[in-house]
């Protein structure tokens, strides 16, 4: 058995509920393993504290307590019987509602994947209008790609703010 398994059995070791086959293995491991020994010490310390508090006497039930409980039961019975059918219906409805929510989720997911897998033209235009894109954004993209491939320097200059002569601009800075 591994350290992790044996460490997990220390509570049962203290309880005395380990089987006669496992008990010596845990004892042997405890003699060698510092971490498990620390765990055992922790259990013993907390057992000591809780055991020491045991003597604090809790309040005592009054002699007529059981009668008092029966009176409370009699008072609450009508209320309980009134709400009971509703409670039963609610409890039975919860799984049905969960199943319904699952089915709706699956249907929504299927519709969404179908939409993403095969977008038709009208759906694309709906998407474009939703994203607030110009209607000819596809054409602009093609023109830009062509310009980049033809004259990349010009594109770079344009993007840098139309500086056609780098030496001139350097002079200005100086």
């Amino acid at each position: 058995m591994e350290h992790r398994q044996l460490k997990g059995l220390i509570e049962e070791y203290c309880e005395g509920t380990l089987s006669p086959e496992v008990y010596p293995k845990v004892t042997q491991h405890l003699a060698q393993c510092h971490e498990c020994k620390q765990h055992l010490r922790l259990i013993r310390l907390t057992q000591g504290i809780t055991a020491a508090s045991k003597g604090i006497a809790p309040p005592f039930p009054a002699p007529g307590f059981s009668r008092q409980v029966l009176q409370a039961v009699a008072q609450q019975r009508d209320n309980y019987l009134f709400w009971r059918p509703l409670r039963i219906v609610a409890l039975r409805t919860i799984p049905a509602m969960a199943i319904l929510a699952l089915i709706l989720g699956v249907v929504a997911y299927m519709q969404m994947t179908a939409l993403l897998d095969a977008p038709n033209k009208s759906e694309m235009s709906q998407l474009e209008s939703y994203l607030d894109l110009p209607t000819n954004w596809g054409q602009e993209d093609a023109v830009l790609s062509e310009t980049i491939s033809r004259d990349p320097d010009r594109v770079v200059k344009t993007l840098m703010g139309g500086q056609t002569n780098p030496s001139k601009s350097e002079g200005k800075v100086k």
Partner: peptide, 25 residues
């Protein structure tokens, strides 16, 4: 608390000491 005495529920003989330990726990 750190000794085995606390686990085996052996209590100090002195009653006031015993009560003090209970209260602390």
């Amino acid at each position: 608390f750190e000794s085995d005495e606390s686990v085996t529920l052996a209590r100090p003989a002195d009653i006031s000491k015993r009560m003090e330990i209970k209260q602390l726990a």
